Amino acid sequence: MARTVQSLLEDIQLLDEQQFRLVEAVRELVKSTIKPLAEEVKYGGIMFTSTIPFAGVFAYKEHVSVEFSLGARINDAAGFLEGAGKGRRHLKLRTVQDITGKQLAVYLPLALEAAADEAAGAGSSSSASGTKR
């Protein structure tokens, strides 16, 4: 049976109220920044899709992670992205203030652009900043 976003949020809230508030703050920012937006529970977190999947939010014991599916393609001028794999990058958030401090609102459209470029087959010719590689 498919898990709902609401049931996952209820579980997060039962386990850790601070993590719940942080996940909810991330969701609100994503909803206000990216349109259209759909959410689904996948891989133990909430995945965000706007015509294509581009990011997700995951609650862990010590932090909340916002994962970018093709984050390695983002021009990370601010330097907040973590990870060294071929594709994914993430932001670790420990407080609601980290959402602003680590510029999540800047990364969201870049993550969507990177995913859209990949879906269009342009992933090898442009980066999420719009510059040629």
Rank of each mutant, 00 (worst) to 15 (best):
E113T: 13
L104G: 01
Q6I: 11
M1C: 11
S127T: 14
A38C: 07
K86E: 06
R94T: 13
D16H: 12
F54W: 03
P53L: 01
M1W: 06
V23H: 12
L112V: 05
V66N: 02
G130F: 01
V30C: 10
A128M: 01
R21F: 04
G44H: 04
A38M: 10
A115Y: 01
A55Y: 00
F80D: 15
I74M: 15
T100E: 15
L37C: 10
A25T: 10
S127Q: 12
R27I: 06
V106T: 14
L104E: 02
S124M: 07
A38P: 00
S7Q: 14
Y43C: 03
S129N: 13
E67N: 09
L81S: 13
R88F: 00
D16W: 04
Y43G: 01
K86R: 08
V23K: 08
A116R: 15
K102I: 09
H63I: 01
H90E: 09
Y43T: 03
A84F: 02
R21I: 03
V96A: 12
D11W: 05
G101F: 06
T131A: 13
D98Y: 06
Y107I: 06
R133K: 15
S124Q: 11
S124W: 06
G101D: 15
S7A: 15
P36A: 11
A120S: 15
Y43H: 08
A120R: 15
F80A: 04
A122P: 01
E67I: 03
K35H: 11
A114H: 00
P53Q: 05
A120F: 07
L104C: 04
F54K: 06
V41E: 10
A111W: 02
Y60H: 10
E67Y: 03
R3Q: 14
A25N: 05
Q13G: 08
G123K: 13
E24P: 01
A55Q: 03
A119F: 12
T131Q: 12
V41G: 04
A78T: 14
E28Q: 15
V96W: 05
A77R: 15
K42Q: 09
R89M: 09
G79P: 13
K92H: 11
V23E: 12
L110E: 02
A55F: 03
A120Y: 06
R73I: 03
R3K: 14
V30A: 14
F20A: 12
A115H: 01
F54G: 09
E10F: 09
A105V: 02
A116F: 02
F20E: 03
G71H: 05
F48W: 13
L70V: 05
G85S: 07
M1G: 14
T131W: 04
K42H: 08
E118R: 11
T33I: 08
E24Q: 15
Q97G: 11
L93C: 10
F54E: 07
V66D: 00
